[in-house]
Amino acid sequence: MSSRSQALLRFLQRLEHVLDAVIQPVVFAGMAALIGVITLQIVSRVFFSAVGWTEEVARFLLVWITFLGATLAFQRGRHIAVTFVVEALPGRLQQLLRVAAVLVVLVFMVALIVIGHRYMQAQSFQKSASLRLSMTYVYAIIPISAAIMAWYALVDLVELIVNGPGTTAGIGSGTAEEPPA
């Protein structure tokens, strides 16, 4: 393809790397906070009287970590996929099916953004039991994570179109660097 297309793709991939670089430490911090809150919960139950808010905070952290972790797994192509049929097809048909799959994912993610936003708004009057925190903040991760995965899918779509039939890109192609094992 043209050099402009390649430049656009490189720009989108750099943005993808930046987003990935932001999400990774957030998930790490969430995991560290979850460990700390659960430790506090155990220690307080054993040695003192239970701290009431720890269970709620742990639950909310787990929800956010799960959704943000799913975006990282999506970006790296770590979600379950059956690809042997597509990989057995000739190049042009393989690219067409990969593009169709990415488009289906994009439609699903846009629907999840809309539904997640509606659900978030519907639950906005509700407060959490011990923290009295608006549940909007808890449910906000649904449209946020769907939007991030939609962005990753969009970058994959551009990559499929720009690089042509020989590309290995697809849903969550894993263009970001993997963390060391």
Rank of each mutant, 00 (worst) to 15 (best):
V114E: 06
V82Y: 11
M109P: 02
R4D: 14
G69T: 05
R118C: 08
P90S: 08
S134K: 04
Q41C: 00
V85M: 09
Q126E: 15
A70V: 10
R78P: 10
I38M: 14
H117Y: 15
Q13G: 05
H117S: 13
F60H: 14
Y119G: 15
Q121G: 10
T54Y: 00
I113A: 07
M31T: 10
S44F: 01
T71E: 06
I23R: 04
R45D: 08
I115C: 08
R98F: 07
R78G: 15
L34W: 10
L19K: 03
A140R: 07
A58T: 01
V37W: 01
L34T: 08
L96W: 14
A7P: 03
R118P: 03
L97N: 01
S134W: 03
L103A: 02
M120K: 06
H79G: 04
E87G: 07
Q126R: 15
A21F: 09
V27G: 01
I23E: 05
L131D: 08
T54V: 08
V104L: 12
Q126T: 14
E16N: 15
A100W: 00
M135S: 03
R10Q: 12
D20Q: 10
V99I: 15
I141F: 05
A58H: 06
V51Y: 06
A50R: 09
K127M: 15
P25R: 06
V82D: 13
V102C: 05
S130H: 14
Q126V: 12
A101G: 09
L106T: 05
S49G: 12
I23F: 06
V99S: 09
Q126I: 12
V22S: 00
I113S: 02
L72P: 01
F47L: 13
V26D: 04
W64I: 09
W64R: 01
R92S: 11
V57W: 02
V114S: 10
L96Y: 13
L40N: 04
V82L: 13
Q75L: 00
Q94Y: 08
H17I: 12
V18M: 10
A73C: 07
S134R: 08
R14V: 12
V104D: 05
L97K: 00
